[in-house]
């Protein structure tokens, strides 16, 4: 098994084979979470630090659960309790943490490129748990795993991504991941929420919601944040729900067996009609389950690589 990455900074660095390796290893780890005793000794004695500069429930917990099920020691540092409030720079904080010899730093930060900055200054492996509007690689990998599970393949599928593409690191990583695996990615969003040149990443920008969703195998919608109303990027949530929200009428345009995905947390009634969110087409909770398996795989692959070296 070849895995050439010491850090996980973004899916842009991952080849198709790298992605397949992660998905296959994640598949094999899923079984651990179904046991009564949900623990394997693989990473015993390893130290994993969660360094979160942005609030997160799901991702942080998912990494922590993943590390603990592999028997690694995990520590959580969130901004509220950290030295950032005392004026310490990010690089200094990281160097201090690195002096305690962790094996992996898992970082979330509101500024794009922060994991790259840390990777330049610390000896530990760095996993990007979401940086600004750049990437969220583990989320895209769990989305890829979820799609492969439900559809048996990724290549040749039509994946519609609808919503705030411009501010979504999840969308960015998914565009890279799904196109690299041979899926067609169709985007739809108000023009104010489409980043410049996104079609050059390999996605197709659609002129209507129907165009994006028609015959899709996967419909993914994204969280829309309240501050987008102020920018000004949108006039109102009411209008957003009417023209860009996903409901049964929209889902009817997709393939009958299409699945619905959302990276969470969901604004019910805005980007997603509650009736669809709770329907049989929704795989939102499978995404969460697969998140643990994918993060176990990433931790394993990074540290197995270190063992070989």
């Amino acid at each position: 098994m070849q895995f050439p990455h010491r850090h996980v900074l973004g899916l842009a660095d991952f080849s198709r084979d790298d992605i397949l390796t992660v998905l296959d290893v994640a598949d094999s780890f899923k079984e651990v979470s179904k046991r009564d005793i949900k623990k394997v000794p693989t990473l015993r004695g390893r130290t994993v630090i969660n360094l979160f500069y942005e609030p997160s429930t799901r991702t942080r917990l998912s990494f922590e659960v993943a590390a603990k099920r592999m028997s690694a020691d995990t520590f959580n540092i969130s901004v509220a309790t950290s030295s950032a409030k005392k004026g310490e720079t990010l690089v200094d904080t990281a160097r201090n943490l690195a002096a305690m010899n962790p094996d992996v730093l898992i970082v979330r930060h509101s500024a794009s490129g922060t994991p790259h900055l840390l990777a330049r200054h610390v000896a530990a492996s760095v996993i990007n748990a979401g940086d600004g509007t750049h990437e969220h690689p583990s989320q895209a990998l769990l989305d890829l795993l979820t799609v492969r599970e439900h559809k048996g393949r990724i290549e040749g599928l039509k994946v519609a991504i609808v919503g705030d593409i411009a501010h979504s690191r999840v969308a960015h990583s998914n565009i890279i991941g799904f196109t690299r695996m041979g899926a067609e990615v169709a985007l739809f969003a108000p023009r104010t929420l489409l980043p410049m040149g996104v079609e050059q990443l390999g996605a197709r920008v659609c002129s209507s919601l129907a165009d994006a969703v028609r015959d899709a195998d996967v419909v993914m919608t994204l969280r829309i944040q309240r501050e987008r109303l102020k920018d000004p990027l949108l006039p109102s949530w009411r209008e957003y729900a009417e023209f860009f929200g996903i409901n049964h009428k929209v889902m009817a345009l997709a393939k009958p067996d299409a699945i619905l995905m959302h990276p969470g947390p969901v604004n019910r009634g805005v980007e997603l009609d509650p009736l669809v969110a709770d329907s049989g087409q929704s795989v939102i909770l499978d995404q969460v389950t697969n998140g643990v398996a994918v993060r176990m795989a990433l931790l394993y692959l990074i540290m197995a690589r270190e063992d070989e070296a």
Partner: peptide
């Protein structure tokens, strides 16, 4: 602002 800023997730 352009595809490079989009790729890096930086405001353009």
């Amino acid at each position: 602002e352009g595809v490079t800023s989009t790729r890096l997730g930086l405001h353009g």
